Computed example of a mutant assay.
Amino acid sequence: MAKKDELGRRGEELAVRYLKARGYRVIARNWRCPQGEIDIVAERRGEVAVVEVKTRSSTVYGHPFDAITPVKAARLRLLAGIWCEAAEHPPGALRIDAIAVLAPAGIADRDVVIEHLIGVC
């Protein structure tokens, strides 16, 4: 597995742990359809969040949130709608969140920096 893929998997796992620690119930991970993939779908207090996770080992090439371009945001909105149509129980409230994970190589999980933006688009 490539280093970037390992980093991405680690970031998604840390994001799931972060969400669960804050009372979210993870509904889906890596949900796929022909139009793309949603990293995490989670629910808390009746509201469903479609969560995009961006992980970096440093900010040398920018902050992880910088990777969520207007094109990516539009795709997330499209995917959220498709997920709702496919959901067994469509949510009453839906939003799109982003989680940035800064996880330098060799750093313990407890020292990783995680930022959560709610309702980004």
Rank of each mutant, 00 (worst) to 15 (best):
R44G: 07
G62H: 11
W83H: 00
V41E: 06
A28C: 04
D109P: 01
H63I: 08
G46P: 10
F65Q: 04
A93E: 14
R32G: 05
G62Y: 07
T55H: 10
P34N: 11
A42K: 04
L102M: 15
S58D: 05
L94S: 04
I96A: 03
L14D: 07
A42H: 00
C33Q: 11
A87N: 00
L78I: 08
L19T: 03
D97A: 00
R45M: 11
R56T: 09
W31K: 10
P90E: 04
L102T: 06
V113P: 08
I38Q: 02
A103F: 13
A15W: 00
V120G: 07
D111I: 05
Y24Q: 03
K4A: 14
A42Y: 04
A21L: 15
Y24H: 11
P34T: 04
V120Y: 02
A42R: 01
E43C: 00
A73E: 09
L102A: 10
I68S: 07
G8K: 07
A49H: 03
K72T: 10
Y24F: 10
G8C: 06
A103V: 10
I38F: 04
R29L: 12
R110K: 15
V71L: 14
K4W: 14
H63W: 11
C84Y: 01
M1L: 12
E88N: 07
W83F: 08
P104E: 06
R10N: 12
V16R: 12
F65D: 01
L19N: 02
E13K: 09
R32S: 06
V60T: 13
R10Q: 12
C121H: 15
R56V: 05
R95V: 09
K3W: 12
I107V: 15
A100Y: 00
C121V: 15
P90I: 02
H63K: 04
K20W: 05
K3Q: 15
E37C: 12
R95Y: 09
R44D: 04
L94V: 09
T69W: 04
K3P: 14
G119Q: 14
V51H: 01
K4Y: 12
G119R: 10
K54Q: 02
R56F: 04
V26N: 09
I38C: 03
L94M: 11
N30R: 09
Y24C: 05
L19C: 00
G23H: 03
D111F: 13
G11Q: 03
D97V: 02
A86L: 11
K4F: 13
C84P: 03
G119M: 06
A100P: 02
A2Q: 13
I68Y: 06
A105G: 13
L19F: 09
E12T: 11
